[in-house]
Design a protein around this nucleic acid. Structure first.
Lengths: 145, 145
DNA sequence: CATCTATCGTGGAGAAGTTCAATCGTTGAG
DNA sequence: CTCAACGATTGAACTTCTCCACGATAGATG
């Protein structure tokens, strides 16, 4: 009948809607720790990649570099991460997590995972894996390594 | 080795990242028509559901009702939609698309679809369908009808 | 009928997030 | 040495988000 599918079948719309739902959930899980979704993402990346440059952080999170400055500032003020000049290229500031940073990240990760699981409950493992691959394909089009 | 998966495997993070990529793309596709992603979504829903209440719009798009007011205001000022009091319950304002609104939505839909397809290119139809179902499950947890 | 409560649309305030241009120090090429 | 390019940083303008409160309407309760 209708030659065009409804908005609720549009992948872009669904992506935005689903992202909002999960982000709101994560936000509540992180609030008691004084973290927001953005700062949590940055902290997580810093914990994973010791001594990561801010430019790289920006590229990974998909934010403007200027936003990373404020986020790292905040994390640094709380003693969760540390900035250090890159000896090889002093334009770069390498960010590293402190012990407190690693610890808080661990707690945050657990809290987020707990809430997050509710959204994906009922998904068979195979399906979750496929979803993850599809999203990675969309989120990182150039397959940057 | 590492007992915990990296952030780039986290579905919440990927959802946010992928959503941003596609939204930015859609935003560029819509700019020439004077629409943004939000107003396009609202317009699309109004075209699909003739005489939809603003509260329902808010629930569908996942926004605060107060934001819908501004969006509908804008669309109404441009003559794309019309507000009318619900005879059955005069608290409701039923929103309907005008002819111009339907026409612009058609063009917008085509433009968005064209760009959107690039992101999902290389996906077999079966996989796209599964992705859509998974996202709907997450985006509309209560399976609201 | 009178009252009480809940809902809808609306407006407003403050926080948070986005986008963009400009600046400063650093690097590498010519 | 000179110059173009790059990373971090700042600031400004703008948009979006999150709440809260208000007036109008509806529905339930006494």
């Amino acid at each position: 009948m209708s030659p065009h599918p409804p908005l609720t079948d549009d992948l872009g719309f669904l992506l935005s809607r689903a992202s909002g739902v999960v982000a709101r959930s994560a936000s509540k899980a992180l609030a008691p720790l004084g973290l927001r979704v953005r700062s949590y993402s940055v902290l997580a990346l810093v914990v994973e990649h010791r001594g990561i440059a801010q430019r790289r952080l920006a590229a990974l999170v998909g934010l403007d570099p200027s936003q990373i400055v404020a986020l790292v500032d905040e994390l640094q003020d709380r003693g969760l991460v540390v900035r250090a000049a890159d000896p090889q290229d002093r334009r770069n500031k390498l960010v590293t997590a402190t012990e407190d940073g690693v610890r808080l990240h661990g707690e945050a990760r657990d809290r987020v995972a707990e809430r997050s699981d509710r959204h994906f409950a009922g998904f068979p493992a195979e399906r979750t894996r496929e979803l993850r691959e599809a999203l990675q394909h969309i989120a990182f089009p150039a397959e940057e390594g």
